[in-house]
Each structure stands twice: as C-alpha cells, then as structure tokens.
C-alpha cells in the first residue's frame, strides 16, 4: 500500500519534469526578452526604495548592451535560487544577477557570456573586532553569508572542516549584516563589491580585514543552454560598450 503510493508519487514527479523540459524549447512570441535577477545584491542590483524599480550596475549595463544591439528587455525579480530553474523552465531568457560563472556546476545548466566583472571574497567584521583576516578566525566563532553565493558555500565548507563553529546561511545580505551587528556572528563573508557598497554607508560600524581569499569569482550573464544567437549579441554588445567608454562610466558610478 505504502510502496504503491510512493511509486505513484515518483511517477507523477517524472511526468511533471518531462512536461517542463518539453515546454523548454518554446519561447515567447513577443520579442521582449525577460531578464531575471535577485534585486538584493547592491551595487549590482537592488530595489529602489521609492520607485520600486530595480536599480544598479547590472540593469544599467544591460540597458546599454540592449541599446547597442537593438533589444527590448523586461526585468523580473525572484529568489536567487530560482534564477537557473527559471531559465530551464523558459520563464526567463537572460540571468543578470552578479552571478559567478565559476561556482558549482552552474555552467552545465545555462550558457554564460563573457565575464563583465571579477570579484573576490572578503571578510567583513564589526569595527571593533580583533580579527585580522580570514586566517585569524577561531574554531569557536560563527560566520554568516547569503544563500546561493560563493560566500554561502565558503562558510558551510569552513563549518564542515571545523574551522568555525557554525556557518549561518541567510536569505539576504541585510540579514547577515544585522546578525553581525547584533553580535550573533563574528563576521560576514561577502563579495568584495557588495561589501564595499555596505561600507559606503556603514564605515563607522564595520570594516574589511585581511586580503581577499577563496575562489576567484567571475560575474557573467547567462542564457538558456544552446541559445548561442542571443549570447553572441550580448557578448558583442558588452565588447562595444567596453570600447566606447560607457562600461567604465558605469563602473565609476556604482563602485567608487
């Protein structure tokens, strides 16, 4: 009786997966492309408090590329974990979310474009912390990071290796910062540009310590597996805005 129920459930699961992948080939008739992102990753993307618009380096860079290539874009905000499944199930055409193309096996699920930003991990700590860098972290300490980021993977690795007591993986960077300021964790492992954006407004309460560490990160946009036509357009657009100075203008605007 129980076994039968399990078989039925798994059969349903497989049928559902099959239907999803069967639908994957299609696309919207409309020529507007859907860009999916998770807008809690400033300065790459965040939601403007007043207008509710998604703002940041990524939207402006993509807008410049779209203008160069004559594309129409529409942005959809979702959980970071849902971005790749969204492309796989054809609910989006492009991911642009400060996504590291070197992490995990992401590159097997979607096709990444050329790198538009390189980053490294940094240890962010409260201003009065005695820590001097990632190597000074003790095994009884706790560190936080955001789910689905390289920092999130890093704190879990450190916990498993016994380098820290607990790696707390939260849904948002803001939760990580709050936990650090509340004293629940001793530091946050964060992407350097993200941490820099926080320090812009919180340099009196927090600081980076030590050198960058961990795996080198390369941020890139991604398209559905095999959509080379779109990927080439985006790569060409990126090359063009790098050449005409628009790209540098945006870097200066968002990361200084």
């Amino acid at each position: 009786m129980k076994k039968k129920a399990l078989v039925v459930l798994l059969a349903m699961a497989m049928v559902f997966t099959f239907v999803l992948s069967a639908c994957g080939g299609g696309g919207s008739e409309d020529d507007t492309l859907t860009v999916v992102t998770e807008a809690t990753f400033p300065p790459f993307e965040s939601t403007d408090e007043e207008s509710g618009e998604i703002v940041g380096f990524d939207p402006e860079m993509m807008a410049a590329i779209a203008e160069d290539q004559g594309l129409k874009l529409e942005w959809v905000n979702m959980e970071f974990d849902s971005l790749i499944p969204a492309l796989q199930s054809d609910q989006g055409d492009i991911i642009c979310a400060g996504m590291n193309k070197l992490a995990g096996d992401r590159a097997q699920k979607v096709d990444f474009g050329d790198t538009y930003f390189e980053s490294d991990l940094m240890l962010l700590v409260p201003i009065d912390s005695d820590l001097t860098g990632i190597d000074s972290v003790k095994s009884d300490m706790k560190l936080a990071s955001q789910i689905g980021t390289t920092g999130g993977d890093k704190v879990q690795e450190m916990q498993e290796a016994g380098q820290i007591a607990e790696g707390i993986v939260l849904n948002q960077w803001t939760d990580c910062y709050l936990q650090m300021q509340n004293g629940e964790v001793q530091g946050v492992i964060v992407d350097k540009p993200v941490g820099e954006a926080y320090l812009n407004s919180h340099s009196d309460t927090a600081k980076f310590v030590g050198e960058s560490f961990g795996d080198h990160e390369e941020f890139a946009f991604a398209v559905q597996k095999g959509n080379t036509e779109l990927l080439e357009k985006l790569n060409t657009g990126l090359a063009n805005i790098k050449e005409n100075g628009k790209y540098q203008e945006l870097v200066d605007k968002w990361f200084s």
Partner: peptide, 9 residues
Amino acid sequence: LWNSSSFET
C-alpha cells in the same frame, strides 16, 4: 542549501 549549489531544484 543543496539546491543553491547544485541547482537540482
């Protein structure tokens, strides 16, 4: 957590 690293949603 597993999904976020493996994307096996």
